[in-house]
Amino acid sequence: SLVCCGPALIERVKRSGGRLIPVDSEHSAIFQVFPAGAPERVSKLVLTASGGPFRTLPRAAMTRITPEQAVAHPNWSMGAKISVDSATMANKGLELIEAAYLFEMPEGRVDVVVHPESIIHSLVEYVDGSTLAQMGAPDMRTPIACALSWPDRLAWPAPKLDLAALGRLTFEAPDEDRFPALRLAREALATGGIAPIVFNAANEVAALAFLDRRLGFLNIAAVVADTLEKATGAGASCGSDDACETALAVDAQARRIAGDVIASLNIAA
């Protein structure tokens, strides 16, 4: 909903006097340390990414990746499609788009850092140089409990952090040459309009084709890039009154284009 109709959805929420409380761990982390009443105090959002199961794998070896390998996430237990998105880092691209919309932050002020331990779930950098982080075990029950009880805190037998046992937390910049989906998502966000809808639809079609063994792992991002290039009106605006209708129409068009791109790749092979 946020990726495809983010600005319209945020506008509807404001118009109704409501408030969006995110559940996804990264956005929940930002929400918990973001000054909702004073966004001008924030200089940057930083989303953390585990890096997935292929964080250190050379690009040449990625041509042999199987669906079974891609769904074996090192930290989180997720469905097959989301696990593939984590392996390509497309999920972090989608989260980047969502964060920009949720917290009304321009693309250039949303960063991604790879944090393999998945203990820090995201950070907010303030204009005075302070950076606040939300930490916790990689367990979705914690952000769900936060959303259900906010602004209170729900007491439950949550997994606790043992920092001494963890020993160290590590960070590195994402490699967008090996994981181009992150760059494509950023470009779609910068283009705006319907481009994020196209990115989402094409990535879903390509990821499912990979799981069906009809597409190679490295070709997932290639299909998304080709679809973004071929989709008509990728920068067109999506008005609030017809946002859902526009999103559905663009989604259908992008899926057709992505399917044609996959078919052409298979014919060429």
Rank of each mutant, 00 (worst) to 15 (best):
H27M: 01
R168G: 09
P116V: 01
P74T: 01
F31L: 02
E204Y: 09
L148N: 04
N75I: 08
G216R: 04
A29M: 04
I82K: 05
V224A: 15
A90Y: 08
A252V: 08
E172Q: 12
G239L: 08
E11I: 02
A147M: 09
R178F: 04
L9S: 07
I120V: 15
V250E: 07
H115S: 14
L47K: 02
F54L: 08
A72E: 13
R168A: 14
F199R: 01
I10Q: 03
A173S: 14
P151S: 12
P174Q: 10
L45M: 06
S77H: 06
A155D: 14
L248Y: 13
A209G: 06
Q32W: 01
S122E: 05
P35S: 08
V127H: 04
A87K: 00
L20R: 03
D251F: 09
M135R: 08
A190K: 15
F217H: 10
S16P: 03
A49K: 10
K160E: 11
A49I: 07
L166R: 10
L9M: 13
S237I: 04
T232A: 14
A254W: 03
E172K: 11
G235Q: 03
P74S: 15
G259F: 14
S130G: 08
E187D: 11
A173D: 11
R64N: 11
P116E: 10
S77F: 01
T66E: 00
A188D: 14
S16Q: 07
V250C: 13
R141W: 00
S83I: 12
H73M: 10
L47I: 08
T227M: 05
P106D: 01
E104D: 15
R168W: 06
V71W: 07
A269K: 11
S83Y: 00
L265K: 06
V110P: 00
D241E: 12
A38Y: 09
E95I: 04
T170H: 13
L45S: 10
A249P: 09
T88M: 00
Q253S: 14
P67A: 13
F34N: 02
F199M: 02
A209H: 05
V110H: 00
G193F: 01
V84S: 04
A185C: 11
A61L: 07
R255S: 02
Q253F: 01
W76C: 12
A87C: 08
A269L: 09
I197C: 15
V124G: 07
V224I: 13
K14A: 15
A263Q: 11
A209L: 11
P67L: 07
F179G: 13
N200R: 03
S1L: 10
I97M: 15
N203L: 08
V198F: 11
A206L: 03
E187I: 14
L228V: 13
L228F: 06
G51Y: 05
R141K: 15
D251K: 10
A147H: 08
A158K: 12
G79M: 13
G17E: 04
A87H: 00
P138A: 14
E204Q: 07
L9Q: 09
A49G: 13
D177Y: 03
G136L: 04
S86N: 06
V127D: 12
L166E: 15
Y126K: 03
N91W: 00
H27Y: 00
D24K: 06
A258I: 05
P39S: 05
C5E: 14
A60L: 04
V113T: 15
I97L: 15
L96V: 00
S25W: 08
R153A: 14
I194R: 12
A221F: 01
